[in-house]
Amino acid sequence: MSSGIQFETQDWIKQLGADYQHYKVRQNQGQLIFSDAMGVINEEEGTEVYAAGFYNHTQISELVPIFARIGKIQVLRLMMNFSGLSKGFCYVRYENAAMAQRAVNCYNNNQIGDKILTVKISRDNRALCIKSSSNSDISGLIKLLRGETSVTKLVLYRIPNTDYGLIVKYKTHKDAALGRKGLIRRFKSDIFQWKLDFEEATWELIWNSQLETYNFFGKSLSNNELL
């Protein structure tokens, strides 16, 4: 974060009023993040919007007041490049889904300056899709992932005439993103992809971690037998 942005934040945040008195701007992993330093974020699906189309020199101090007109912002994340400029898009999470939809209705295809914005509900993807032709690879991953507190569900599929597929569902999108990054780093593989909804329709369900028993590679086992 440049020193200019740090200096500027103090005044413009105060001008937003009492609702934002504990908010700060911090930099983290290529993002400028405007959020409540003392609050707990509600990451319910449908509360976040994706906004794109503004100039790369647009600052977070310009974006926050625009999106705050809609309702109380929980978090605004401005994506940055290595040179310290924005990538021209951000994510805004509101207190509830109604506010997020209102932001879409008000700002999508509307003009700010001479730029046309794209604003839509963010796809809050909390699931990864892992494909492998190796039974042992998938078995090992299941044992590993069952120990992760951020993982809420594991679903194993047989993809007709090809490989096995494991859907890993996490508590939040952030958990899923961090989980994917950790898996790629650990296994040095690109098989950990974001789940595509249409894929499940063509797959044969073999196992669901929330069921007490399942068919695991041709054997009927209980959940406890995999621990």
Rank of each mutant, 00 (worst) to 15 (best):
residue 1 M to K: 03
residue 1 M to T: 01
residue 3 S to V: 13
residue 7 F to W: 00
residue 7 F to K: 14
residue 10 Q to L: 15
residue 11 D to R: 13
residue 14 K to G: 11
residue 15 Q to A: 15
residue 16 L to R: 02
residue 16 L to E: 01
residue 18 A to T: 07
residue 18 A to C: 06
residue 18 A to M: 08
residue 21 Q to W: 00
residue 22 H to L: 07
residue 23 Y to C: 05
residue 28 N to I: 09
residue 29 Q to S: 14
residue 29 Q to L: 15
residue 31 Q to M: 12
residue 32 L to F: 03
residue 34 F to L: 04
residue 34 F to G: 02
residue 34 F to K: 03
residue 35 S to V: 02
residue 36 D to R: 02
residue 36 D to E: 03
residue 40 V to M: 08
residue 40 V to H: 02
residue 41 I to E: 08
residue 44 E to P: 00
residue 44 E to D: 14
residue 45 E to T: 10
residue 47 T to C: 14
residue 49 V to E: 03
residue 51 A to C: 14
residue 53 G to D: 03
residue 53 G to A: 05
residue 54 F to I: 08
residue 55 Y to P: 14
residue 55 Y to G: 14
residue 56 N to E: 05
residue 56 N to Y: 00
residue 59 Q to C: 13
residue 59 Q to M: 13
residue 61 S to D: 02
residue 61 S to V: 01
residue 62 E to V: 08
residue 62 E to P: 09
residue 64 V to T: 02
residue 67 F to S: 07
residue 69 R to C: 15
residue 70 I to R: 03
residue 73 I to T: 01
residue 73 I to D: 01
residue 74 Q to N: 04
residue 77 R to N: 08
residue 77 R to M: 11
residue 78 L to C: 01
residue 78 L to I: 03
residue 81 N to R: 07
residue 82 F to K: 10
residue 83 S to Q: 09
residue 84 G to I: 06
residue 85 L to G: 05
residue 85 L to D: 10
residue 86 S to R: 03
residue 87 K to G: 03
residue 88 G to M: 06
residue 89 F to C: 07
residue 89 F to Y: 12
residue 90 C to I: 02
residue 91 Y to A: 10
residue 93 R to K: 11
residue 97 A to V: 09
residue 97 A to T: 07
residue 98 A to N: 07
residue 98 A to W: 00
residue 101 Q to A: 12
residue 105 N to M: 14
residue 107 Y to T: 00
residue 110 N to K: 15
residue 110 N to I: 08
residue 115 K to Y: 10
residue 116 I to L: 12
residue 116 I to M: 11
residue 122 S to Q: 12
residue 123 R to K: 11
residue 125 N to L: 12
residue 125 N to A: 09
residue 127 A to T: 11
residue 127 A to R: 06
residue 131 K to T: 10
residue 135 N to V: 13
residue 136 S to Q: 12
residue 137 D to I: 13
residue 139 S to R: 09
residue 140 G to F: 03
residue 141 L to N: 04
residue 142 I to T: 00
residue 145 L to I: 04
residue 145 L to T: 03
residue 145 L to Q: 01
residue 147 G to P: 00
residue 148 E to Q: 14
residue 149 T to W: 01
residue 150 S to A: 15
residue 152 T to C: 11
residue 154 L to A: 02
residue 154 L to Y: 01
residue 164 Y to A: 10
residue 166 L to Y: 00
residue 167 I to E: 07
residue 168 V to Y: 00
residue 170 Y to L: 08
residue 173 H to F: 09
residue 174 K to C: 14
residue 176 A to M: 11
residue 177 A to S: 11
residue 177 A to L: 15
residue 178 L to P: 05
residue 179 G to V: 01
residue 180 R to F: 06
residue 180 R to A: 09
residue 182 G to K: 14
residue 183 L to Q: 03
residue 185 R to I: 05
residue 190 D to G: 10
residue 192 F to D: 00
residue 193 Q to S: 13
residue 198 F to Y: 10
residue 199 E to P: 01
residue 202 T to K: 08
residue 204 E to A: 14
residue 205 L to Q: 02
residue 206 I to A: 13
residue 207 W to G: 12
residue 207 W to K: 07
residue 208 N to M: 11
residue 209 S to K: 02
residue 210 Q to D: 13
residue 210 Q to C: 14
residue 211 L to P: 00
residue 213 T to D: 08
residue 213 T to L: 07
residue 215 N to L: 15
residue 216 F to V: 07
residue 217 F to N: 05
residue 222 S to R: 12
residue 222 S to A: 10
residue 223 N to M: 11
